[in-house]
Design a binder for these strands. Sequence first.
DNA 1: CCGAACTCGGATAACTCCTGTCCGAGACAG
DNA 2: CTGTCTCGGACAGGAGTTATCCGAGTTCGG
Lengths: 169, 169
Amino acid sequence: MKLSGGVEWALHCCVVLTTATEPVPAARLAELHDVSGSYLAKQLQALSRAGLVTSVQGNAGGYVLTRAPELITILDVVEAVDGAQPTFVCTEIRQRGPLAAAQEACTRPCPIARAMAGADAAWRAALQATSIADLAGGVDDDYGPTALAGIRTWLTGPDEGGTATGERG
Amino acid sequence: MKLSGGVEWALHCCVVLTTATEPVPAARLAELHDVSGSYLAKQLQALSRAGLVTSVQGNAGGYVLTRAPELITILDVVEAVDGAQPTFVCTEIRQRGPLAAAQEACTRPCPIARAMAGADAAWRAALQATSIADLAGGVDDDYGPTALAGIRTWLTGPDEGGTATGERG
DNA sequence: CCGAACTCGGATAACTCCTGTCCGAGACAG
DNA sequence: CTGTCTCGGACAGGAGTTATCCGAGTTCGG
């Protein structure tokens, strides 16, 4: 029951993208987070397929949020990256074995499936209650507006460093 | 983000065990649910390690619930089988990269981790709100008391069928 | 008291999914 | 029109889960 690791990267990228008005390449986001650019690209592709970000190709290309940050919930990102399948899938074992329940009596999910579905709904409701804008606001509350402003500046800073940056790989 | 499949089996087994007063072997539970006995044994071992059931060896051995069904929650079973690790693990990528946050400012989890932890807590709270006794009661509500009574009868029925049962595997 | 059957428990393979990487197609800028 | 940069999908490696088996321990019957 562990969430895919790429979800964290995707969420951070979405928060970062709130500060940017121009497209941001995947490589730049990977450098900012110090993670594998090749793998991060996969997560961004998932976001693109889900319609959360728009991909712009070409020289000044990259990714841009398609909607206002207040209209993108954490649930959207989670489902885009990790898939929208429910946490619990009932295999209807009550209809199997020597004492299988009659199929006519199985129009409703079994109590176990109902309880698990309720918990799943609670989880998703909590994820849907928080938007990317809320996350960005939380960063401002914790670190002050200078943090996101610095990221915005760094994103626009085009070719700073070059070989002088501390590449340790 | 899919829950381990054995969780469903374990939950059904716990509900079945509420009807039994004597130890029930894993093979009997597997036959009742028409699932792999070898694999079901692993889930029951997990329940045993978590202290939810007691294992009795020997000729009339098997598994018995250690506590009253009202005192065993779905969360207990889920954590016993699937592990108690949280759904989201923050890798602290905010402390990485060229704009890494100062470590002194990272005493609190980042907003993303906070939101995910809140959703995780909501999920676990929902799972903890339902007990095995509630599930058994739900079965009674849906199918009437004859269902669980029939299971109890079948469990006590020692060697019914033999080769005459419809074994299709 | 001894033997046998039955039970759980852990150690052992096969498989699926996630993690990580690469190269090609397409598009904007010059 | 060419070049460079970008995304997009196709390709290996590894961890975790799924499924299975056999051995250690215990109780019942003779």
